[in-house]
Design a protein around this nucleic acid. Structure first.
Lengths: 209, 209
DNA sequence: ACCTGAACACCGTTCAAGT
DNA sequence: ACCTGAACACCGTTCAAGT
């Protein structure tokens, strides 16, 4: 296409909202909202296109298929989770156990507020490797690894592979979140349970040991 | 319907497979198989009906809608999980830690073999209470509660609410399973991680404390 | 470059009708 | 009692065509 032709089109569509680069973010934003309100089953590409004011075939330019949209949602979910957990840790003060507890509680808060998104983040990719998604997951995981390393530096966590210990913490809070979302744990028991899990991780059984 | 009329129909359909009570189990069996092979997205009522040799509207007699079938799958999944964990604990010998470890490893084995089914078992029911499903979940949970009580009776687990401690164990193994199914934990690291989690639950940090 | 409109094959759900 | 067949409204995906 010539430059002149390009500008002719650009002017012609200047008042129409989703040309030239904002359809993709608009679809993602709408999808995140629908996911929170209606769950994964309520998320339809055609309906998204309608809500965003575009033909049902338009999303195809930005997402190869529905799964690609879901992958993108999962990826930004991991990024937001990382940010929220990091923020919680940073505003938790000096005490190591308090910082660890804050990370777990931030995780659980995210997980229960965006249960369908969390489901998506953990949905089995069935062998498909999605590099950017794996990086986003690794980024969130690294928050815990760094926390464990901090604890080792100050001597409150035993020496040893920090990845393995962070994995254990990760699994514990994710499990608590899963049980909460399945209705097995009542919401008000969540924070105490996280606190107990962290306490046990650091000190073992309270009265025995 | 008169008895005579009933027998006339019964004879007429004697060679047809899914009259009079085996359509429901046949659908469930086929669904469980498809779930394992194709995942949740590959599970379509119409396709199930086809595979089982029945019209697409026939399942309606046995399951009000697709969700009802999924609920039934989840329920039998919880029952099978309970049975498998119980069996593993019973064949694990006398040592308490070995029994606890066996329960966790059986859980993780089930979860990784039937990842899509596990997803279904933990799928948020979004407020809908399904009584029989909740009972099945409680049954599986009770295995862990009893294990904790055994440990308290023999003094290797601290006194205190056994439900709360069982919940912590439950969350930990479920979290490990979720991380495995998301591809965050490699399969061969699963058993050691479960062992470490159980060890920490009982003894705290190995070298500190 | 980006989007539209028509087309295709599938799906879940409903309902009158059949045996 | 249990199942069928037609109908409806929706969906994901594809592709030629438009601007």
């Amino acid at each position: 296409m010539s430059t002149a032709t390009f500008f002719r089109y650009a002017l012609a569509v200047a008042d129409r909202p989703y040309h030239h680069g904002n359809l993709r973010p608009a679809l993602l934003a709408q999808a995140e909202h629908t996911l929170r309100e209606q769950g994964l089953d309520g998320l339809a590409l055609r309906e998204l296109a309608r809500q965003v004011g575009v033909s049902h075939a338009a999303p195809r330019r930005h997402f190869a298929d529905r799964q690609a949209l879901l992958d993108a949602l999962a990826e930004s979910g991991w990024a937001r989770l990382e940010a929220e957990v990091r923020a919680a840790v940073e505003s938790a003060g000096e005490d190591y156990e308090a910082r660890l507890r804050a990370s777990g509680q931030a995780y659980v808060r995210f997980a229960t507020r965006d249960a369908a998104l969390l489901e998506l983040m953990f949905a089995s990719r069935q062998g498909r490797q999605v590099a950017t998604l794996q990086e986003a997951t690794a980024g969130a995981f690294s928050v815990l690894v760094e926390l464990v390393q901090d604890g080792q530096a100050s001597g409150v966590v035993e020496p040893g592979d920090p990845q393995r210990m962070a994995l254990l913490l990760f699994a514990t809070v994710q499990g608590i979140a899963a049980l909460a979302n399945a209705g097995i744990i009542a919401p008000k028991r969540l924070d105490p349970l996280v606190a107990e899990a962290i306490g046990r991780f650091l000190h073992g059984q309270p009265t025995l040991a």
